[in-house]
Design a protein around this nucleic acid. Structure first.
Lengths: 145, 145
DNA sequence: GGCTGTGTTGACAACCGTTCTCAACTATCT
DNA sequence: AGATAGTTGAGAACGGTTGTCAACACAGCC
């Protein structure tokens, strides 16, 4: 009943590949939330192409490990970004370019827990995201008009 | 330059049909958020079937008119429900059954506006939803174990 | 009541983001 | 170098949603 691997339970020793490095690198560059498809395209245009499926897989892995934050755009697309801090936080995101600022919802955590309890709900999670148009994008917009 | 219709600008006089009534009725029944597909199935099983496309269209119309609230489930599906109040509010939603309670985020409105302004963002909107498991669903769950 | 004309419907195709499949590939260990 | 097992990628499949368009049915009119 003894395992051949020392780590026993965890079946998968992760492996460093060009593709994973490329995706991680692309995320490291920016403070903007990016979709899987955008990243796929970005990598392709950079010259080190990575299969779309691999981009999705890698992002999912990174997200599971807490290395990147995921959120859903207003039309349901998943957006990814590497945030400065790993602790729970929220975002103020630009609808147009994806640029984001990490913010705290000071009272949100406690509030959500107590509201949940008050109504007999358990395992409370909360979604708190702010959307807006950043100054840079507004400038671009004005110029276009 | 005069129109044949009295209302001029608004090109579309809405028309009451069996289908629209059925969808509205199905929404009136419950305090649970339901997906378009669930409603479609519900109507079919009730005997007064409505085409899936029509369900989607009707829900969209109702949502645009502020007659139903829409939110995205954790896996991206759109969920609809007729809420008691039309004013802006948030929800505490059961992950399992969709049952929802309308809640206020007392300080959220002001907070989001000021955070947005502080970072030079305009047209701020916020997404604030609470997810949990309601008492009834926990009971069902326990019984299953 | 019947006519008529325009908003509405529904079966089906198309779309789009995402996940699955599986044979070829390659990082890693020996 | 060779063996092993995790990884990749092209393309198919999937699931929710929207578009298409000919048949249909409300609503006003005769």
């Amino acid at each position: 009943m003894n395992d051949t691997t020392p780590a026993a339970r965890t079946a998968a020793p992760p492996r460093m590949t060009r593709q994973r490095a490329a995706v991680a690198d692309a995320l490291g560059d920016t403070d903007e939330f990016r979709s899987a498809q955008q990243l796929h395209e970005l990598l392709r245009s950079r010259g080190d192409a990575v299969g779309l499926a691999t981009v999705y897989r890698t992002l999912q892995t990174l997200a599971d490990g807490g290395d990147v934050d995921v959120l859903r755009s207003e039309d349901g697309e998943s957006l990814y970004r590497r945030c400065a801090r790993r602790e729970h936080h929220h975002h103020l995101v630009c609808r147009a370019c994806g640029r984001a600022v990490e913010i705290d919802g000071p009272t949100v955590e406690q509030w959500s827990a107590s509201v949940g309890a008050a109504h007999g709900f358990a395992d409370i999670e909360h979604t708190v995201e702010l959307w807006g148009t950043c100054a840079a994008c507004r400038a671009t917009d004005d110029r276009a008009n």
